[in-house]
Design a protein around this nucleic acid. Structure first.
Ligand SMILES: [Zn+2]
Ligand SMILES: [Zn+2]
Ligand SMILES: [Zn+2]
Ligand SMILES: [Zn+2]
Lengths: 162, 162
DNA sequence: TAGAAACCCTTGAGTGACTACAGAGTCAAG
DNA sequence: CTTGACTCTGTAGTCACTCAAGGGTTTCTA
């Protein structure tokens, strides 16, 4: 199959597939006479695995480790389990941060019940005061804004059935 | 004061200040004879405001809007309130996503109680199956991994008192 | 007063995980 | 034989910074 069909089957977009190839996550595929990439069932499996991991917010490096173990079935999976535990920790950590954020933001929001002159807006006032020195933890979980770039993951995962 | 002192006072690093200037968030400051940037109290205020907003995970574009209202005290602050409401929504949305993620990850984790051959690891198996087509929502809240780049925000905010 | 250390300058590249585009080539249907 | 859908490579852009090279300036100290 060509790249477009692989993309459809795995709920990915074509550029992402080429990106994964460049990045070493997908093996370099055979080429047709016309220089088109040619894929088989194994590629669908592997790409689907990657996308599933990505939908669980793993990094490509985390995924690389998992792929290694998929390809070395005789090795002990203790590292897989550890990786997952650590990643669950990453998610939990970020959730805590976001909870604290939500609390602060709601506090702030209450400072301006209804619209008035910006000069007396409780929100702007609140933002002008010192930060509560909340325990900043160093998780590797990212910020609060998902941009166009990331939305394709959600889009890609709709209606894919491997 | 010079850029280093501003950085100290606002809990930022120097490169970030120059970046904000390039990006139009901070006004172009006066220069000394030796071509050093010279700042005053207003810069400290403005930069602290920006950093406080960033610590609440707002985007620079969201912050630009807030800065506009800080500079137009006679305007009505309804947009400020709306912006904050929307941003609270961003955070809440991401928290829901992460809760769903955590659930899926914990399910997955239970599939491999203790280490064994990778060939029979319940986690790798689970990741090889179809995705639960969970309701993917299009928030703008980002992923699960915070990298070195972002950690400075936490670091920067420690012990700053404007 | 010399020289070292600390600070500052600009420019350009790198981060993660992609997306988007330009300009070209390939292929199947009508 | 043309149209249109698909594919190719290569490059640049996203966000909010961070880092480094290779210089200049200021300040402290011997
Ligand atoms: Zn992780
Ligand atoms: Zn208000
Ligand atoms: Zn927001
Ligand atoms: Zn296992």
């Amino acid at each position: 199959m060509k790249i477009g069909e692989l993309a459809r089957l795995a709920g990915t977009n074509v550029e992402t597939i080429r990106y994964y190839e460049r990045d070493g996550l997908l093996p370099v595929p055979a080429r047709s006479e016309g220089n088109y990439r040619i894929y088989g069932e194994t590629h669908v499996q592997r790409l689907s695995f990657i996308r599933r991991c990505r939908s669980l917010d793993m990094t490509l490096d985390e995924i690389r480790v998992l792929l290694h173990f998929k390809e070395s079935p005789q090795e002990n999976c203790a590292d897989v389990n550890r990786l997952l535990d650590r990643h669950i920790g990453h998610v939990a950590q970020r959730m805590q941060e976001l909870q604290e954020l939500e609390r602060q933001l709601k506090d702030l929001r209450e400072r301006c019940g209804e619209a008035r002159e910006a000069a007396h807006c409780g929100i702007l006032d609140g933002l002008s005061q010192a930060i509560v020195p909340g325990g900043e933890t160093a998780s590797h979980v990212q910020g609060t804004h998902r941009h166009a770039a990331n939305r394709s993951l959600a889009k890609g995962n709709q209606g894919n059935q491997v």
